[in-house]
Design a protein around this nucleic acid. Structure first.
Lengths: 138, 138
DNA sequence: TACGTAAATGCAACAGTGTTGCAAAATAAT
DNA sequence: ATTATTTTGCAACACTGTTGCATTTACGTA
């Protein structure tokens, strides 16, 4: 098991349970983004659907993972780089969705360019989602 | 009725039906984005749910409207500036979602800044979604 | 204008997604 | 080891979106 798992859970004052350990491990292993359905499939019948939903919710609240916007209807989650503080997510990096294989990447090293809005709009967060073809699909 | 309605439908080789006229009018009237649920509520019992889904699908295919990405699970649609050609949407403008009232704006005059990705990624589209507080909610 | 064809609609049924309440089980604290 | 708190699993429900098929509507032609 990944050494960061128990550590991360404790730091966020979460009790150490099987589902949390397993789900967090999935995120740590495959660095890409995961949808609820991915987790449900990978974990087989081990956990209830509802438990997965609640675990993801908890992780988002604690700033362990963040949601990735998408034009289709699917919500994907990915690890926050260094755990964001509760309620405050500074994931100002670019997300990339491959049109071909569907994989979602967090491009941690590509920062979001500044966007200047008309006066009157107060910006709290900027999400950039790039779609196209990824490394593996060319 | 808005004069552009029949014109737009004809130009896209769509038959003129009540639902298409009514739904297109909704988009032309309130310049903001609309979710399926909004349309269902506004139209009352006039059209079947399925008809609304299919109309939205058709409009997206024809490039009359486009979908707006969002971090939550809701799909919203907005008019394409000048009808995009079929299958090709050039909506490279910034979208703004108000955290307070939930309204989604298309900021047609704010263009998407260039994003430079690591080599190996082929970019086909860049979506920028800004969230915060809008003009009315301050 | 009337007619025939092609397209769009409404209905029923279904699958997927996400939420809530509550009892049982697991975790944490003593 | 025992108790209090949290988490889980189950059941049920609401919402979202899709598909097949019969009926209705729109469109081109005569």
């Amino acid at each position: 098991m990944h050494p960061r798992i128990v550590d991360t859970l404790k730091r966020n004052q979460l009790s150490i349970t099987d589902s949390r350990k397993k789900i967090l491990e999935m995120f740590l292993q495959r660095k890409g983004a995961l949808a609820h359905a991915d987790i449900e499939q990978q974990s087989g019948e081990e956990f209830d659907r509802v438990t997965i939903y609640r675990t993801l919710q908890t992780f988002v609240e604690k700033g362990i993972i963040h949601t990735i916007p998408s034009a289709d209807n699917s919500v994907r989650y990915a690890l926050c780089k260094d755990d964001c503080s509760e309620g405050h997510h500074h994931d100002n990096h670019v997300h990339f969705m491959c049109d071909h294989c569907g994989t979602t990447y967090c491009l941690d090293h590509v920062t979001v360019p500044p966007v200047v809005l008309p006066s009157g709009f107060l910006v709290s967060q900027v999400d950039v989602v790039v779609s196209g073809t990824c490394l593996k699909c060319q």
